[in-house]
Design a binder for these strands. Structure first.
Length: 596
DNA sequence: GCCGTCACG
DNA sequence: ACGTACGTGACGGCA
């Protein structure tokens, strides 16, 4: 057992941090069934050290970048061997992040993953935060001290090795204890398959996507920035002259003073803090004064410039020349992913500037971008979940679903559906998925709640399956306290039995919407696994780089592009079998705009 | 740190 | 009479 001598007599809280390891490359970890890992600090690309726990009594700390500690090359090599062993399962908290940290040490993580953060998310996706501290509280009633509380906001390399070792080895003990608790709960809640077949393997896919990143055209970006600068300057002068004075256009408070006090326009809507100056109000005011329209123009351009054009270049990573978003797997209450730092799921697509901004996202030389998106996925999911015969038939007959709804609502032939009628029907179809209320629909359509109510009644009278389905979902939520997706993902609906009518009705809308949005999220996650597997199986160099809820964006070598398009379309369309066809539209181009 | 606003699905 | 369509993230302003 010389292999294990490295860790003999190492107590978790009294840790050796360097060891003569003997022949590290000969290290045999075949008997290591499972280990727990924790990186210090937990969320950073540049780790200062890594804690490794073998069992209850043995843990060690591998310093990597401490001011007062030498790095342990031998131990590091053993760590690498263990991490890269397919047969050793890894337990951790936020393992995707762990992978990113370890990649700077040229260490990969392979094999079965037990991520307590992901498990916590599946058990309760409503939790605002799946930090280790919060999960310890939620599942073990332990109030854990966070790294920053323990050490203050220091430079982490300044933390003494001994302190870091004690802290992170203690964390591995907590994570290890948590693992048995939350994974038992997963089993009891019927969430095991969702974890092992979907979310756990997805960690690898998301890691690859984040690591690969997205290329942007910096030259064009700076050109657009200058163009926006000029436009904003000229709009600013125009606005000051129309207002008769200078003020901060970006301050809703100052703007409200100009519009309603100085000029004397009529406020139409209130916020908690004052009169609203949002787009709808401004559009209304634009009918009687020149200024509001210029404010709308200014706001639009300012948003584009600050949030996208000027922010993105700063996030280009020097080492790769690309932008690496974080794909968050445990944020949304419905099962969707989210994207942050930067958010690449809300890049403009509409309007005059949308295509110009999407054109900044480009493929590497010799490559192309491939965009593939699901068509009407949430309505197709609703058709399946509800079993509504009319909806199912419409999709089976490959009908334009908005035109179909327009025909029903307005009682006309397909040929007589005007674009106005189709637009209204489209809004109603969205409303159905959101659990629409007469008021909500009336706001969206600019009609009275009474008229909206008639539309809603008209829709449900023709879609009895949908009505019955929603009734059943709400009943189930009242009885069980949660709703589920097609793959068994749960979302608790705490207020479903509230005596407060507002809270209760909001809960009912969540109960109606979550299974639909969540099933669509399950579907595309499954498709991502299949696409990834298939591309690997066919030894292709095409890779996924982004997921935007119902769209996958890939970067593909030119010579592979057509083949990749076929594969991605196939895998997305066949990810699950439901009672209606699932359709994917795909395009290829030099930029994201061209691929659409 | 919250609010209002607005970009996306 | 009340407040009301689902899910996100980022910005600037302001307390």
């Amino acid at each position: 057992m010389t292999q294990f001598s490295l860790f003999d007599n190492i107590q978790p809280e009294k840790v050796k941090h360097t060891q003569s390891a003997g022949d590290a490359q000969d290290f045999d970890c075949s008997k290591l069934g499972e280990i727990t890992l924790r990186v210090m600090p937990p969320s950073s690309a540049s780790p200062v050290g890594i804690a490794l726990r073998l069992d209850k009594n043995n843990a060690c700390y591998v310093p990597l970048n401490h001011r007062d500690g030498q790095n342990a090359d031998d131990t590091l090599l053993i760590l690498k061997t263990i991490c890269e062993s397919e047969n050793t399962a890894k337990t951790g908290h936020d393992i995707k992040n762990l992978m990113l940290s370890l990649s700077s040490e040229d260490i990969k993580i392979k094999g079965m993953l037990h991520d307590v953060m992901l498990a916590s998310y599946l058990l309760n996706p409503n939790l605002s935060d799946h930090s280790l501290e919060n999960i310890c509280l939620e599942h073990m009633m332990i109030k854990k001290t966070s790294l920053s509380d323990q050490f203050g906001k220091t430079v982490f390399t300044d933390i003494p090795v001994k302190d870091a070792a004690e802290f992170s080895c203690h964390e591995t003990a907590l994570i290890s204890d948590l693992r048995s608790i939350v994974f038992d709960k997963l089993k009891n809640e019927g969430l095991e398959r969702l974890y092992y077949d979907l979310e756990m393997p997805l960690i690898y896919v998301l890691y690859d996507m984040q690591s690969r990143g997205v290329k942007i055209d910096l030259i064009k970006t700076s050109e657009i920035s200058k163009e926006l600068e000029r436009e904003l300057d000229s709009l600013q002068s125009k606005i000051y002259s129309l207002a008769g004075e200078e003020f901060n256009i970006n301050s809703p408070k100052q703007l409200a003073r100009i519009l309603f006090d100085v000029i004397g326009l009529r406020p139409t809507k209130k916020t908690k803090t004052g009169f609203s100056t949002n787009i709808e109000v401004l559009e209304e005011l634009a009918k009687v004064h020149e200024l509001p329209q210029e404010i709308i123009n200014y706001r639009g351009l300012h948003k584009l410039k600050t949030t996208y054009i000027d922010a993105l270049p700063q996030l280009v990573k020097p080492e790769t020349g690309r932008i690496h978003t974080t794909l968050n797997q445990t944020i949304t209450a419905t099962g969707r992913l989210s994207s942050s730092d930067p958010n690449l799921q809300n890049i403009p697509v509409r309007g005059e500037w949308g295509p110009r901004i999407r054109a900044l996202f480009v493929a590497e030389e010799g490559n192309l971008l491939l965009s593939a998106d699901y068509s009407q996925i949430e309505l197709r999911v609703l058709a399946h979940l509800s079993g509504d015969e009319v909806l199912i038939k419409a999709f089976q007959n490959n009908e334009d679903i908005h035109t179909h709804t327009a025909r029903e609502i307005f009682g006309v032939e397909a040929a007589d559906v005007t674009s106005e009628m189709r637009r209204t029907a489209k809004t109603i179809n969205f409303g159905v998925v959101y659990g629409m209320s007469p008021f909500g629909l009336s706001e969206a359509l600019g009609i009275s709640p009474k008229e909206a109510g008639i539309f809603i009644e008209s829709y449900f009278s023709r879609h009895d399956g949908v009505r019955k389905y929603f009734d059943a979902v709400i009943e189930a939520a009242k009885k069980d306290g949660f709703v589920t997706t097609l793959m068994g993902r749960k979302r608790q609906i705490p207020d479903i039995n509230s005596s407060n009518a507002n809270l209760r009705q909001q809960a009912e809308r969540l109960a109606m919407n979550s299974p639909i949005q969540g099933t669509a999220a399950d579907l595309i996650k499954k498709a991502m696994l299949s696409v990834s597997q298939r591309l690997k199986a066919e030894s292709m160099r095409s890779v996924m780089i982004l997921q935007i809820h119902d769209e996958l964006l890939l970067e593909v070598p030119e010579h592979e592009a057509e083949r990749a398009k076929v594969i991605v379309t196939e895998e997305m369309e066949s990810a699950i079998q439901i009672s209606v066809p699932i359709k994917v539209e795909a395009g290829i181009g030099r930029s994201w705009a061209d691929a659409h």
